[in-house]
Design a protein around this nucleic acid. Structure first.
Length: 249
DNA sequence: ACCTATGTTGATAC
DNA sequence: GGTATCAACATAGG
């Protein structure tokens, strides 16, 4: 589930109720989620410190501390953050235990989430929710890759995943396979507006799995506009649904 | 039972 | 350099 809207909700949760609480201990024994850190390393580095800010770009989150290292978290493919709830072993892959008895947990069955200190974020592009029209045209429109692949490239624009991109391209009536550099400036501007609108709807509606199109995104599903049966294929390495009538090449 | 599917990213190969 | 492919993980479903 986690795309930009879920990451933002998680970030806001920490900002609202997770800051300025003394860290008493860190559960960091999952060497895959915490790679390349050894068990105990994050614990030693964060113990006694407090999170003082909650930042996000795309699906990446990071939390600065008072004089200690920055903690980076990523939800991966199935992770979520829980604050002050009952521990759920073995699916809590990482957690901060606060001195007040509370706990911030990364719960993730798949183990594709990450918890790392002092991240390097130079391969994370501008956030999809506030990228400028100029940056969008330049970063998206200059590649021959299919437009869908380009929108999912986190170094070009950060925050969009498979479901959200299918929703956005359907709203924009653009075929996912169209080479990005064949889009006109007007089409790129329009596409950016659809990116922002879809994100706004997803954040208000509670996540990337809802939308005008996404509920129909399944085998035998039909286009909510023209009722044609949806096409299914692989674009950018991901399962893709689109309307073969509405979404023009 | 077996095979395929799944929101993620990163390493590797062309 | 940009793009495509596969692997990493664990679980669910046909």
């Amino acid at each position: 589930m986690p795309e930009l809207p879920e990451a933002e909700r998680a970030r806001a949760l920490v900002e609202l109720r997770g800051l300025n609480r003394r860290i008493a201990a860190v559960e960091d024994s999952d060497t895959y989620v915490c790679r390349p850190h050894a068990p105990g390393e994050i614990h030693e580095a964060l113990r006694g410190h407090h999170l003082i800010s909650a930042m996000r770009r795309g699906k990446s989150m990071w939390f600065e501390t008072d004089g200690g290292p920055t903690l980076y978290l990523h939800l991966g493919m199935a992770g979520r953050l829980l604050l002050d709830e009952e521990p759920h072993e073995p699916w809590d892959r990482f957690a901060l235990q606060f001195e007040d008895g509370g706990r911030l947990a990364l719960r993730d069955k798949r183990r594709l989430g990450r918890a790392v200190l002092d991240p390097v974020l130079d391969r994370v592009g501008p956030d999809a929710a506030d990228i400028t029209p100029k940056a969008f045209r330049e970063r998206i429109g200059r590649s021959r890759a299919p437009i869908k692949a380009r929108l999912m490239d986190q170094s070009a624009i950060a925050g969009l995943g498979n479901l959200l991109v299918d929703e956005i391209l359907w709203r924009a009536s653009l075929a996912p396979t169209r080479p990005a550099n064949e889009l006109s400036d007007d089409e790129l501007d329009g596409l950016r507006r659809h990116v922002r609108a879809a994100l706004r709807d997803a954040m208000r509606g509670g996540g990337a799995h809802i939308g005008k199109f996404t509920p129909h995104r399944k085998k035998g599903g039909h286009c909510p506009r023209c009722k044609a049966e949806l096409a299914r294929g692989t674009v950018g390495g991901r399962t893709t649904f689109w309307c073969p009538v509405d979404q023009t090449e």
